[in-house]
């Protein structure tokens, strides 16, 4: 049996590779594409496609319904502003981040695939960059797809095209804000929790529990007439934080009871967001500097 196999191999012979070998940029790009595909289960088992595709569908169904309503009832404006869509469906977005961040990074750590990565011409920083970019793009696909449906519905219903386009683009920029922040937070938590279940739970806790907490605090503060407290409470959950930034920068309608107060408030929200981004990314890089190969 094994003698036969050896015979077969003898006949074919080993051929050396003489073609081109690509540099660092191409290698990082390859990891980025693999990771982005992986976020939607492409190239993996059928089972790993179910969750992300299902979430993408759930994310788009309300947009389809809204587009149908706008056309059916001849509405003169979008019932849900583009910039609010992510917050309205934040549970779906949070579940996506919770399910796919561990898929993106914990899997490599748990199965020690990082040993095979880092023994190749791929640096730790390259790895973090590729994974982060892939997660941001995976989230953008999730966040912008429904906006495209809304936009299509709006144009079909002959809403003023100029204003519609402007609102759609602002919504897309808002989606970028959400994507960069949620990707950083999700990957950071997942990178510290190699066990997949734990990672999912931790991301859900950070995204949804903080949002609920902030909402409760905001509700009570507003009841007590403490609008400033209500506004700054938004700093303490990723969703309300990013929402505050887009309220200030993009003039979006706040999803919280109150948006950040004035320029100072806006700057505080922006600075907090940038600090969160820098901190998460920095910790991620530190985390991977410590990953040894087995």
């Amino acid at each position: 049996m094994s003698a036969d196999q050896t015979g077969v191999i003898h006949d074919i012979g080993y051929r050396h590779y003489t073609g081109p070998r690509l540099g660092r940029g191409a290698i990082v790009r390859a990891l980025f594409v693999q990771s982005l595909r992986g976020a939607y289960g492409l190239g993996r088992s059928a089972k790993s496609k179910v969750m992300p595709i299902l979430l993408l569908v759930i994310m788009c169904v309300p947009a389809l319904v809204i587009a149908a309503v706008v056309n059916g009832f001849k509405l003169t404006a979008q019932p849900v502003p583009y910039t609010r869509y992510a917050v309205v469906l934040l549970a779906v977005v949070a579940i996506f981040v919770a399910a796919q961040s561990p898929q993106m990074v914990s899997r490599d750590l748990r199965f020690r695939l990082t040993s095979l990565y880092f023994s190749r011409p791929l640096g730790r920083l390259d790895y973090v960059l590729a994974k982060y970019a892939a997660m941001v793009c995976a989230l953008l696909l999730l966040l912008v797809s429904p906006l495209v449906i809304l936009y299509g519905g709006g144009l079909l219903a002959r809403l003023p095209a100029g204003a519609e386009t402007r609102h759609f683009l602002l919504g897309a920029v808002g989606a970028v804000f959400f994507a960069v922040v949620l990707a950083a937070v999700g990957l950071l938590i997942a990178a510290f929790t190699p066990r997949r279940g734990l990672g999912v739970a931790a991301v859900i806790a950070v995204l949804l529990v903080t949002y609920s907490g902030v909402s409760v605090v905001q509700g009570i503060a507003q009841d007590q007439g403490q609008d400033t407290v209500a506004a700054y409470a938004g700093l303490f959950s990723p969703f309300t934080l990013v929402d505050g930034v887009q309220v200030w920068l993009l003039n979006a309608r706040p999803s919280s009871p109150v948006g950040p107060p004035g320029t100072t408030g806006g700057l505080v929200f922006l600075a907090t967001t940038l600090a969160l981004l820098a901190g998460s990314f920095g910790l991620l890089v530190l985390r991977y500097r410590k990953v040894s190969i087995s």
């Binding site: 590779y17 073609g19 081109p20 070998r21 690509l22 540099g23 191409a26 290698i27 390859a30 990891l31 693999q34 190239g43 993996r44 088992s45 089972k47 790993s48 899997r107 199965f111 020690r112 695939l113 040993s115 095979l116 990565y117 190749r120 011409p121 791929l122 087995s294």
Partner: peptide, 24 residues
């Protein structure tokens, strides 16, 4: 040590790793 993820085929994994070594 064991370094292989269970949820992909050998072909898929080796192609990915080959690309990370700089192969087109």
């Amino acid at each position: 040590h064991d370094v292989l993820p269970p949820d992909v085929s050998a072909t898929e994994l080796i192609v990915q790793l080959g690309r990370l070594s700089g192969l087109p």
